[in-house]
Simulated assay, not measured.
Amino acid sequence: MTDTITVTLSKPIMHDGKEITSLTFREATAGDACAADLVEGQFKKMLAIMSGMAGVPLPVLMNIPMREITRILTEVTPLMGE
């Protein structure tokens, strides 16, 4: 397994005046899971874990179209543990 996975977005998104064209995800940590406990809802918890893995604020992931999230999940699931 690789240490990181970089996913190129099909369309750039803007956050805090910066254009984001790709996200690099590292392996999920227990800390990512703990941070996810601070948000409500299962899907939002998963996004919170992914935001920790990518080192970006949760709103970045929340602005990505759902079809992209589905693709990203497929690519980064190996880094999320079992």
Rank of each mutant, 00 (worst) to 15 (best):
D3F: 11
V76D: 03
G55Y: 10
L23F: 06
P59M: 09
R26Q: 09
G17A: 09
M80W: 06
I72P: 00
P78G: 12
E82D: 15
E19V: 13
Q42H: 05
I20C: 06
A33Q: 01
S51M: 07
M50L: 13
T21H: 11
E75F: 02
F25G: 10
L47G: 01
M53N: 02
L38F: 07
G31E: 12
P65H: 01
K11R: 15
C34Y: 10
N63I: 02
G81E: 11
S10Y: 05
G31Q: 14
M80F: 06
P57V: 02
F43C: 01
R71T: 01
I20Y: 06
T6W: 00
I49L: 01
V76H: 04
I5H: 08
L58K: 07
D32S: 09
D32N: 14
D32K: 08
P65V: 02
V76Y: 00
V7E: 02
L61P: 00
P78H: 11
G52Q: 02
R26C: 12
P59I: 07
E19P: 03
D16C: 09
C34S: 09
M1R: 02
M62I: 01
E19T: 15
E82G: 15
D32I: 01
C34T: 12
M1H: 10
V60K: 08
E82M: 11
E40V: 15
M62P: 02
G52M: 09
C34V: 12
I20S: 05
D3A: 15
A28V: 11
T4P: 03
K18V: 04
A48P: 00
E75S: 14
S22M: 08
P59D: 07
S10P: 14
I69P: 04
V39Q: 04
T21P: 00
R26H: 14
V60L: 11
A54V: 05
T24R: 11
D37E: 15
T77Y: 04
G17K: 08
T4R: 12
I5W: 01
R71D: 05
A28Q: 06
L73V: 12
I64C: 05
R67D: 10
E82C: 06
F25S: 06
E40K: 15
M1Q: 06
T2H: 00
D3Y: 10
M46F: 04
T29P: 10
E68S: 09
L38S: 14
V39N: 05
M1E: 08
I69N: 01
D3K: 15
A54C: 03
L61R: 00
F43H: 06
I72W: 01
K18L: 09
M66L: 15
